[in-house]
């Protein structure tokens, strides 16, 4: 069973999305959002949740939840090294490199 959808939708039904939720999700996704945009996003999301609520009315008892839109199994490849070193090519478009490393603003936890 995959309770992703079922769980999330059930909780949505119980509580309407608030501005606080929108701001939190925006922060998690590292999106900068001003108050006007947040209001707007909140409205739109409520609309989407309305659609979901309508879909919740469809009886789905005994239907196995989907994990993918297509009814197919994962394709597998043989365990072989097929990629040659392409560092020079890839690093040509990097903003900053040194000693073969990509340089990024310092992040320490």
């Amino acid at each position: 069973m995959i309770p992703y959808c079922a769980d999330n939708f059930a909780s949505i039904e119980r509580m309407a999305i608030s501005l606080v939720d929108v701001k939190r999700v925006a922060h998690l996704a590292r999106l900068e959002i001003d108050p006007a945009e947040a209001e707007q996003a909140c409205e739109r999301l409520r609309g989407i949740f309305g659609l979901i609520e309508a879909m919740q009315a469809v009886p789905t008892d005994g239907v196995e939840p989907m994990a993918h839109a297509q009814e197919m199994a994962l394709r597998l490849r043989a365990d072989q090294v097929t990629e040659a070193d392409g560092r020079e090519l890839f690093q040509a478009i990097a903003p900053q490199v040194e000693d073969g490393l990509y340089l990024v603003p310092k992040v320490i936890e």
Partner: peptide, 23 residues
Amino acid sequence: TRSKIFSGASTAFGAAPNTQACA
């Protein structure tokens, strides 16, 4: 494994930085 889980780049330990990182 010889290659990575989702790509054909090598997993050998100790290579020069980013020489085993494909697209």
